[in-house]
Write a protein that binds this DNA or RNA. Structure first.
Length: 464
RNA sequence: GGAGGGGUGUCGGAGCGGUUACGAGCCCGGCUGCAGACCGGGUAUACGUGGGUUCGAGUCCCACCCCCUCCUCCA
């Protein structure tokens, strides 16, 4: 049904790289540092890779998707200190909160979600090797990567080594031989500490990803991704470490998701312009939020707007309605049609063009709506239903499900309304309908019956 | 200052050498007890600015203007 290939744009080379199934697809995405709630800027990146994950699996690749948690870090330690709790406890708490949000977003669970603290030994082995190879040096304050030893340093972010110190924001550690060198291991007196050949301390940030990729996926992976703000220094440093260590390219493709802006600035906790995922979902609904964040191409910056969210919701209603129609009146004819899915597949296979893919899904949804309106859906092709289901699933949508205790209540109200209508007591019937709507249920009247559906009902009263 | 990504109709947002993107909005109509949802029809003379290449350019080339991100916290 889907074509076996796809092309992805690579930040490093600037060109498109083609992959063809069957084949291995090892994908690593830099995940979260768990010291606070996850916001919708993070959600954008995670959703992009979620769709990619679903797509390549549907295309028949042998996929292994690794997404890490950074659970030891200065921010975690500082935050924990403020709260008077153990850093590990803080990390644990926010990791659980993040996983809850991921579920609300209907993110398909990655194959492995390793944590930095589970790999400190592995990190030390790589650091030792880098020191032995002359790529790193030991000082009283820690172990540093010698950037000048890696001639290709700067190839990802297109930076020349000599301009790297120009904008340095912090005072370089006096033990560094070059301000551009970065820490692999830092020696500390307190906080969470690990023994090491170079003294008690903690790993640097970048080494964890190099290590976890090596441990879970191998020397060269197919896709490495993250937010655009990770290109430098994080991914640049990962390349330096990993490629010095293995002598092989770290990834065939580097994928970077454009940042979500809020009031012309990127959404960031330090700027105080964040919206938490769980708040966004409770206000606007998981599918509307997902559709909105995927309605612009992943590489473009996205300026948050309520207007855009409303448009996304209009499109979601069309899709949602088609999904319900298919559930209520499944097609039975066995003839096959596959026009829409080709358009969808073509869009996603061309550097994950989700806006075009959504357009294809909306178009198919309207087609289904048209069949339903003329009572021709049941007799139509099962191919239509199959194509719709495939597209719906790859986009990661999920219809809202009523709680089991709600079903009875809703059905009772629907029945009550039907009786009132039959008796011509329309004002009272309308009041019941209004009540159901407030509960998140929508009624569709047919000549012979009324059906009900749980639908997303965004709350637009919030302004930003 | 350096690097990267953008500027498309009323709005969101694709397209990147030659066909309607797709939605929303607005107008008319259908369905309906009425709404909602859904459906049909109509409505958009758009491509940051100035040059150039071409039979033909949002789509390629050259300048310029504006916006965002990154330049060691960052998805």
């Amino acid at each position: 049904m889907l074509s076996p290939s796809l092309r992805i744009k690579d930040t490093l080379s600037g060109g498109l790289v083609e992959f063809r199934a069957p084949g291995r697809m090892r994908m690593y995405v830099c995940g979260l540092t768990v010291y606070d709630y996850v916001h919708i800027g993070h959600a954008r990146t995670l959703l992009v890779f979620d769709v990619l994950y679903r797509l390549i699996e549907a295309k028949g690749f042998d996929v292994k998707y690794v997404q890490n948690f950074t659970d030891v870090d200065d921010k975690i330690i500082m935050r924990a200190r403020e709260l008077g709790i153990e850093p590990s406890q803080l990390a644990e708490t926010f990791m659980e909160e993040a996983l809850r949000d991921f579920q609300l977003l209907n993110l398909k669970r990655p194959t492995v979600m390793p944590r930095a603290t589970q790999h400190v030994g592995d990190m030390q082995r790589i650091i030792s090797a880098l020191v032995e190879g002359g790529y790193a040096y030991v000082t009283p304050s820690g172990v540093y990567y010698r950037v000048s030893r890696f001639p290709e340093y700067g190839k990802l972010s297109k930076k020349k080594p000599e301009q790297l110190l120009a904008g340095a924001r912090i005072e370089p550690d006096p033990h560094k031989l070059d301000p551009a060198d970065f820490a692999l291991w830092k020696i500390y007196g307190d906080g969470p500490l690990w023994e090491s050949p170079w003294g008690r301390g903690r790993p640097g940030w970048h080494i964890e990803c190099s290590t976890m990729i090596h441990a879970h996926l191998g020397e060269t992976i197919e896709i490495h991704g993250g937010g655009a703000d990770l290109i430098f220094p994080h991914h640049e440093n990962e390349i330096a470490q990993s490629e010095a260590y293995t002598g092989k390219p770290l990834s065939k493709v580097w994928m970077h998701v454009g940042l979500l802006n809020m009031r012309k600035e990127k959404m960031a906790k330090s700027l105080g312009n964040v919206i938490r995922i769980r708040d966004a979902i409770s206000w606007w609904g998981p599918n509307t939020l997902r559709l909105y964040l995927l309605s612009s191409h992943y590489r473009n910056p996205l300026e948050f707007s309520l207007e855009g969210l409303k448009k996304a919701h209009e499109n979601w209603r069309i899709i949602e309605s088609a999904a319900h129609e298919l559930l209520e009146n499944p097609p039975t004819s066995s003839s096959e049609v596959d026009g829409a899915i080709d358009e969808f597949d073509e869009a996603l296979s061309n550097d994950l063009n989700t806006p075009s893919a959504i357009a294809a899904l909306v178009k198919l949804s309207r087609f289904i709506g048209r069949l339903a309106a003329s009572h021709e859906l049941t007799g139509s092709s099962t191919g239509v239903a199959k194509a719709f289901a495939t597209m719906f699933d790859i986009m990661g949508f999920k219809l809202l499900e009523p709680g089991p205790e709600e079903v009875q209540k809703v059905e009772r109200l629907v029945e009550m309304r039907t009786m009132l209508r039959r008796e011509g007591r329309f004002d009272e019937a309308d009041a019941v309908r209004e009540k159901l709507r407030d509960m998140g249920y929508e009624i569709t009247d047919y000549p012979d019956r009324s059906s009900w559906r749980k639908v997303e009902r965004p709350d637009w009263s919030r302004t930003f």
